[in-house]
């Protein structure tokens, strides 16, 4: 359908944790304009896959291609085009939301202070800019982390359980943001325990890539009886 080449391509990805394969022979193409939800029961490796795609973890077999180039050669470009929101929000509790965002602005090379204030207003945190984060609720903390999406210039968003602790209006706002990002030619990879209300949502179920005994024998070092 899509004529453009895949933005992100996974070939034969396999991941082993503590002598157990989480998934294997994972082949997938992700295109610009997609919102992809990664599915699977607890312990199936959703978080691990996202950490691999974010470049946090390098323990995997197989290849990842970024814009048709091997990720190894384009790691720098990819890092510039990536926003990763992990399981942990990455927010310092003794800093204010504004100070937190200022550090993230530096991570992606500088953003005007006014834009950071605007980003906080977008996640309904206007007036909280200078309140220390330890005074905020769990949902508000999550919103501080999500404010990064507002000033991000990244093409790829990798979001691990971003809906956690958000109230109804927060969920709707985030969904709108994901739709807008995809419409602007971005790619969203997301995990969630609740249903995501986004038109044209793509699904990737990790249970579709079970561990195949034959493959494992080829890995010489690990075989299962």
């Amino acid at each position: 359908m899509t004529a453009a080449p895949a933005l992100l391509e996974l070939r034969n990805l396999a991941c082993e944790r503590d002598e157990r394969y989480l998934f294997a022979q994972l082949n997938a193409n992700f295109y610009a304009g997609q919102v992809v939800q990664i599915l699977g029961p607890n312990g199936s490796g959703k978080t691990t896959l996202l950490r691999i795609l974010a470049g946090v973890s390098k323990d995997f077999y197989g290849d990842i291609f970024w814009q048709s180039q091997p990720l190894k050669d384009t790691a720098w470009e990819y890092a510039n085009d990536l926003l990763y929101l992990g399981h942990l929000p990455g927010i310092k509790k003794s800093l204010t939301p504004f100070e937190n965002l200022r550090w993230y602005a530096a991570v992606q090379g500088g953003v005007a202070d006014a834009d950071l204030i605007k980003a906080l207003a977008q996640v309904q945190l206007a007036g909280y800019e200078n309140t220390p984060c330890y005074r905020l609720s769990a949902g508000q903390l999550r919103r501080v982390a999500l404010a990064r999406l507002a000033f991000s210039r990244a093409k790829v968003w990798v979001l691990d359980e971003p809906f956690t602790a958000l109230d109804k209006s927060g969920v709707a706002e985030l969904e709108a943001k994901l739709i807008a990002h995809a419409a602007a030619g971005g790619l969203v990879l997301v995990t969630s325990h609740q249903d995501i209300n986004v038109p044209n949502l793509q699904l990737l179920n990790l249970l579709d890539f079970p561990v195949d005994a034959q493959l494992l024998n080829s890995h010489e070092d690990a075989a299962y009886g």
């Binding site: 720098w76 990536l82 942990l88 990455g90 550090w103």
Partner: peptide, 17 residues
Amino acid sequence: RSDFDDGSLEQLLIAPY
């Protein structure tokens, strides 16, 4: 320690820097 606990260490690791 605190960077590890709150997740900002991961962000430092993957930053294009």
